[in-house]
């Protein structure tokens, strides 16, 4: 058998479960690879991953130590992005900041998305008072502006990067719950759900194996699109001094410090700003492409 050839993957009549799963995966990847903007997004995300993984090797200087003689140098060959008010190399700090950004983004996604997904699916599946209670709680969270709510939580928990992550996650899940619920409602009364119920499957099994997989793609898409927002919220908390604490090279905090010199030494605030914009854009583009490929509603139209 010609394992892993293109025809084998695209076969309409796979012979094993593994081949069928791989084939489906390959189709998604192939469809995605035909979208140039999504590929740009993916390249940015991969670059972010690589930079975060190899930060210590890539960065030419230490992100924490600088010499005060070199403070507030404009971009030059020695310091590509210039130096900040303590003489630290901004380029090195931005590179190390990628780690923090990535950690925030991943932790938030890992905490918020499953939580929202489960709350939404349970709420939509059962309906009735379960739905009213869960959605009531969700609405309370949704009704407050995200940054303000995160601010309140950080203020209560104390400043710091871990607390910022928790606060952002707490403010992020209601959106996913709403999406998962809306998605669940569209097929809650569908016959394929009735059919598994009729086969004696428990509610937990129906939700876990039949409802959640259908909500998954729209949630994944939404999470990718939200990444930009999460980065910005984290940056916002950092900017307000409630997120990462100095001397950690978090991008938002760096902008916050650079604000003091924005008129005379523009690069101090601008360089981490660029990093935020590019990474946010990367997630947005990739999320958009992913939506085109995964969203079943779009698929129906084509």
């Amino acid at each position: 058998m010609n394992v892993l050839s293109r025809d084998w993957l695209l076969s309409e009549d796979p012979e094993t479960r593994a081949q069928a799963k791989l084939g489906q995966f390959y189709r998604v990847v192939r469809a995605l690879s035909r979208n140039p903007l999504a590929m740009v997004g993916l390249a940015i995300i991969i670059a972010l991953l690589l930079v975060a993984a190899f930060a210590s090797w890539i960065a030419p200087y230490s992100p924490f130590e600088g010499s005060l003689q070199n403070r507030l140098q404009p971009p030059s060959v020695a310091h590509w992005m210039g130096t900040d008010e303590l003489g630290r190399d901004i380029y090195s700090r931005v590179i190390h900041g990628a780690r923090i950004t990535l950690m925030i983004v991943l932790l938030v996604a890992v905490i918020a998305a499953p939580l929202g997904l489960i709350v939404g699916a349970v709420s939509g599946y059962f309906g009735g008072w379960v739905d009213r209670v869960l959605m009531g709680v969700t609405d309370v969270f949704l009704s407050m502006p995200r940054l303000i709510l995160a601010l309140a939580f950080v203020a209560a928990l104390g400043p710091g990067i871990e607390n910022a992550v928790i606060a952002i996650a707490i403010t992020a899940w209601p959106v996913y719950a709403r999406i998962a619920r809306a998605e669940t409602l569209t097929f809650r009364t569908a016959e394929f759900i009735a059919a598994v119920q009729m086969q004696g499957a428990s509610h937990a099994r129906v939700i876990w194996r039949h409802v959640i997989p259908l909500c998954l793609s729209s949630t994944i898409v939404r999470v990718t699109l939200d990444m930009a927002g999460i980065i910005l919220t984290a940056a916002g908390l950092g900017f307000l001094g409630l997120g990462a604490q100095p001397p950690m090279p978090e991008w938002g905090a760096m902008i916050s410090r650079g604000r003091a010199f924005i008129l005379d030494q523009w690069w101090v605030a601008t360089m981490p700003g660029f990093a935020i914009v590019i990474v946010s854009l990367g997630f947005c583009l990739f999320g958009d492409g992913l939506r085109d490929v995964l969203d079943p509603k779009q698929k129906v139209k084509s």
Binding site: A190, E191, F192, H210, P213
Partner: peptide, 17 residues
Amino acid sequence: VQMVFQDPYGSLHPRRT
């Protein structure tokens, strides 16, 4: 007792083989 539904488009889970 088992049941066969009316709509073959709605009675199969779209993501399951």
